[in-house]
């Protein structure tokens, strides 16, 4: 077993509100970890800390062996975060969005094509502006651009939200394949019956603590 995320007593603050009030979390390589908990429990902040995006005020932690206090910007290139917002440029088409992300990591056109096919946003949809997509289609586009980023840890915040039945199946398959290829997945979800079947372990986050 090899831990890829180790957090100890982590406190993270949004403005003056302690979103995380001293949380411990360990994730092993190859896990699909489900974070559960009510709204406002700190799931999103926890994912953002793991991504090296949200600085921690107290406590300590390592992600992929990198210290989250002093070197969090090094973590970022190696993890992929899909938050509540999709990170799309609304005035670009689906294909242009994914091509842009591919250009930032040097992914090939073939990789882009296969990612788009995988998330079913190829063909006619590829030429549609993101602003004209449905919520589910945007989610698929965001997932496709996450695929081309080849992250070692996938951090997903409510990834099922907005997706239809086939989209959910595709997402589950995608995550299983990613894990089979050596990645680790942490996802926050309210859809427990769906995510439970997918997850290898469940952690409940509540009021900033985790168990």
């Amino acid at each position: 077993m090899e831990p890829v995320i180790e957090l100890k007593g982590v406190v993270a603050v949004l403005g003056s509100f302690p979103a995380l009030a001293g949380i411990d979390l360990t994730v092993q390589r190859g896990e699909i970890l489900l974070l559960q908990g009510p709204n406002g429990a700190g799931k999103t902040s926890l994912l953002r800390v793991c991504a090296g995006l949200l600085p921690i005020e107290r406590g300590e932690g390592r992600v992929l062996g990198i210290d989250v206090t002093s070197q969090r910007e090094l973590i970022r290139a190696r993890v992929g975060l899909l938050g509540h917002s999709n990170g799309l440029y609304l005035d670009l088409t689906v294909e242009q969005n994914i091509m842009f992300w591919a250009a930032t990591v040097g992914a090939s056109d073939a990789e882009v094509a296969s990612a788009m096919k995988r998330m079913n946003v190829d063909g006619r949809l590829a030429k549609v502006k993101a602003s004209q997509l449905s919520a589910g289609q945007r989610r698929r586009t965001a997932l496709a651009s996450l695929i081309v980023r080849r992250a070692e840890i996938w951090l997903l915040d409510e990834p099922h939200a907005g997706l239809d039945a086939s989209g959910r199946d595709e997402l589950d398959g995608l995550l299983r394949d990613a894990v089979a290829a050596g990645a680790t997945v942490v996802l926050a979800s309210h859809e427990s019956e769906r995510a439970n079947g997918l997850a290898t372990r469940v952690v409940t986050v509540d009021g900033g603590g985790a168990r």
Partner: peptide
């Protein structure tokens, strides 16, 4: 505003660009 409309600047930062 095109960067922040759908969290793209956040996404750029988290991607370590």
């Amino acid at each position: 505003s095109v960067e922040s409309a759908d969290g793209a600047l956040d996404a750029l930062r988290v991607a370590g660009v």
